[in-house]
Write a protein that binds this DNA or RNA. Structure first.
Lengths: 339, 339
DNA sequence: CTGTTAGCGCTTTCAG
DNA sequence: CTGAAAGCGCTAACAG
């Protein structure tokens, strides 16, 4: 019950292993007749070349590693799908590693992928320190960071424009006539949260509106976090007519809070979320939100990675992906284009 | 910039490669002093053994393949997480393959994993025919089917008890006094849908209630499918006081339909879904549903797989995982235990 | 306790 | 157009 190997095919076809190798890889000259004969034997024997033997000989495994904090999180699941699909399209297979948000496990995963000799590595929302990250990057020829930037290294990253997202969300509310717009800001430690908040402020400033820190409340990035923060925000500031939320889960919490207070959405309060997770379209009223191109995050990462693999030593590159406003019932209004 | 190899470590430590191999794998005797010296050199040089070289020598790659229709689907994302985590805990890495529900791609993925010489394969909700599946199984020593059964093969599978789920959901409605219970049944071609419907019928029969086919409507497994089917069901049968839904998405559609018709949930109509996706807890009213243990599907699959790898040639095994009723607002009531 | 000798299955030279 | 020899980095099986 041993695997059939190249030598078996060669013997059966009456040629050398080298010839079999040539027809498999389509390089070098092989007469049409020989090729056909070899192909037939391969088919008949059900031969499959051994990737690891090939890997040992070529020092290329046709494999890329993907490290994510949690595949079950829809955000990373979409990234993973993007990575998997485009890697597959280019003939690569992907090793998936889950870190459970734990830097220790992240390091371990990276080590394990190094042993597997992946050709390249995609690291998503790394929880490592800059120092650790620099060390890791140094060990790998081909490396792409997703949703994280690292200065001072030959690093390629694919990022989301969170500031633009915050701006977009806020602008939309302002444009539909809401002048008292609050922010349910998510965790204070969140990098993307800070950027979205920055966008919120920028949008206010652009319209010549003052920034009221008391209209901004941090919260856990969950529905219940959003609900509670919104409840407090609304009871202290009933003057608010619009709310930008850190993400869609928080926005759903805001929706619940509005309901708790008998406040009509969007009539009394218009709400905009971030991310456009599937849930956003299913709640009532459906959420207006900033769609973040998660799948594309994955495909672009693979693109950058393979670029590095082909042409060696590219300089650093950074791709920033833009969010897109999706208008639904929680903050309706004509979607206008940028001036 | 070449990788440091075992020979480098051996030379540097003044021992043979074999000794280095022994300390790395922790097998065979090595004096404590030598071990320490080797370890130090490994550390200093940043040596990492080559998994592929080892794989070629041992014919074991420490790798398992996971094939799913779509990682971005929360169901499979959870399975994938279960697989990844427990594989990792046992020192295995997992190759993830997405088939996009396409049998052709599924076959291709399987072939590709065979080339990578994975030690075992986990195939999730396969879209292949029985014949194709039999062929695939025959090529692999270690194989586990998730959410799919295959008769007449030395196959191991991990399954969800869909019939019990349908029964559980229906029983709950009957117990809280709903005697006119309809079924929004999902796609007619869905295997799990048919089983859940069977459970629905069984529960009715157990209570001595008649089965009315006109209270059952198929639909697309989506919120809009559920909404439309429920709308039709309610307008033809306003007598219904309870609804079992194929899955949570469909149940959310049913919720929307009830709202459309000004029908109160749960007062006028109690609704039970299936799966317990995150969404279920977030809609208003929150959904009562049958939780299907998706993460465990993954962990158990790995368990079965590794069992096969260790002790060769196990007989077929089948693990059936039980659903669990999660009571929330859409069909409240004291959760009773089985009689 | 440690080292030597052979491969694992493929591809890379370099010759025919 | 085809083949022979050598080796990728590691470990199994023996020796010592």
């Amino acid at each position: 019950m041993d695997r059939v190997k190249m030598a078996d095919v060669a013997r059966e076809a009456g040629v050398s292993a080298m010839t079999v190798s040539r027809v498999i890889n389509g390089k070098g000259y092989v007469s049409d007749e020989t090729r056909r004969r070899v192909l037939r034997v391969i088919e008949r024997l059900g031969y499959r070349p051994s990737g690891i033997a090939r890997g040992l000989a070529t020092r290329r495994t046709g494999t890329i590693g993907l490290v994510v904090p949690d595949v079950a999180n829809p955000f990373f699941a979409d990234v993973a799908r993007g990575v998997e699909e485009s890697a597959y399209a280019e003939g690569y297979n992907v090793f998936l590693c889950n870190t459970d948000e734990d830097p220790q496990r992240e390091l371990a995963a990276l080590g394990s992928l190094e042993e597997r000799q992946v050709d390249g590595l995609i690291l998503c929302s790394s929880r490592l320190t800059e120092d650790e990250l620099h060390k890791v990057v140094a060990r790998h020829t081909s490396f792409v960071l997703v949703n994280r930037r690292l200065v001072g290294a030959r690093t390629h990253s694919v990022l989301l424009d969170d500031e633009a997202a915050g701006r977009l969300a806020t602008q939309h509310l302002l444009r539909i006539g809401r002048r008292a717009v609050g922010l349910v800001a998510g965790p204070e430690t969140s990098h993307s949260g800070q950027l979205r908040a920055k966008g919120y402020r920028a949008a206010l400033a652009a319209d010549g509106l003052p920034y009221y820190p008391e209209w901004v409340r941090p919260c856990a990035p969950t529905a219940s976090g959003g609900r509670q923060a919104t409840l407090e925000l609304l009871s202290n500031h009933p003057e608010l007519t619009g709310l930008v939320c850190y993400n869609d889960l928080v926005a759903v919490g805001a929706l619940q809070a509005a309901k708790d207070r008998g406040c009509q959405v969007p009539a009394d309060l218009a709400i905009v979320g971030h991310d456009d997770i599937p849930l956003a379209a299913l709640v009532t009223p459906a959420l207006t939100t900033c769609r973040m191109p998660r799948y594309e995050l994955g495909t672009r990462a693979v693109g950058l990675l393979l670029e590095q693999l082909d042409s060696s030593a590219e300089p650093s590159a950074e791709i920033v992906l833009s969010p897109e406003l999706v208008v639904r019932a929680s903050a309706p209004g004509p979607p206008e284009t940028e001036p």
